[in-house]
Amino acid sequence: MDLIRINKYLTEAGYCSRRAADKLIDQGRVKINGKVPELGTKINSTDVVTVDGKEINKPKEEFVYLAFNKPIGIVCTTDTRVEKDNIIDYINYPKRVFPIGRLDKPSEGLILLTNDGDIVNKILRARNNHEKEYIVEVDRAISDLFLKRMRNGLPILDTITRKCKVEQISKFKFRIILTQGLNRQIRRMCEYLDYNVTKLKRIRIMNIKLDVPTGQYRDLTNSELTEINALISDSQKTN
């Protein structure tokens, strides 16, 4: 009988991402057959898994893939107990979904949501070089030196950011395309150069472009999903 790690089970059940699952396990909110497991515990098909006392079963329904235009002020968390302005309550989707990655509370724009844990893990792997495009406004005039240094990488969070595409749009506005997702990366890069971000909007993730009004979402099309699967086909699955 095949065994599967408990965090992967929760992900494939569409409950949350693998990272969030590890946090739930660490908090003692997950039980297997009534007992709190350790991180990395494996289960089989006969085990009963609960989160906060509620049994979690793998879905028999089709997966959901959404493109959402997140407003400023909404938090990308699935923990509805903590954040009042969380993305799950805001969307109020009839099935349980969770965001792929994050978008800061003061930022807006495109974020994908799904209940397909496998696609989440593949997209989130930075080494897969998946592009994310942003329009950014700053508090003072953009210089040629600013553009050059942003493109070539800056020291933040104990690393050097990858080289990236940066294009000036106007005196205070630029476009940037990243292939990594460090915490508050664009804001930290700008702050390193003594600029403050006044507006940040994500307009593209891989082949998915932002095309719905603020606060609304749509289903991804079959052609978009086909292209996403082609883009992430070299991603490695993990146990």
Rank of each mutant, 00 (worst) to 15 (best):
K8C: 10
K95N: 14
K31H: 05
T226M: 01
R184T: 12
N57G: 06
K95Y: 13
V136K: 03
T80R: 07
T114G: 11
K35N: 07
T41I: 09
V64L: 04
K60C: 04
I156E: 01
L157W: 03
N69M: 10
R204D: 08
L225S: 11
G53E: 11
L10N: 04
T238N: 13
G34C: 06
L178R: 02
L124M: 13
R19F: 03
F172R: 12
I6K: 07
N129A: 14
I135R: 09
N86F: 11
R162L: 15
I205N: 03
T179V: 14
S17H: 03
L103F: 05
D79Y: 00
Y9N: 08
R149P: 00
D158Q: 10
G181I: 03
I160R: 14
D139K: 10
I186E: 14
S233Y: 01
D85M: 01
Y90C: 11
N152T: 13
I232M: 02
R96L: 09
T46M: 09
V49C: 14
K35V: 15
A20Y: 13
G14I: 12
S107D: 10
I177C: 10
C164Y: 04
Q216G: 00
T50W: 04
R127S: 15
N115E: 11
Y217W: 15
K165G: 00
K173P: 06
A141W: 00
K31P: 05
Y15D: 00
R188S: 07
K199Y: 10
I119A: 04
N183P: 06
I91D: 09
S233G: 01
K60F: 14
K171M: 08
D2K: 11
T179L: 00
L182C: 03
L220S: 08
R184I: 10
Y217P: 02
K209W: 02
G14S: 06
Y90V: 13
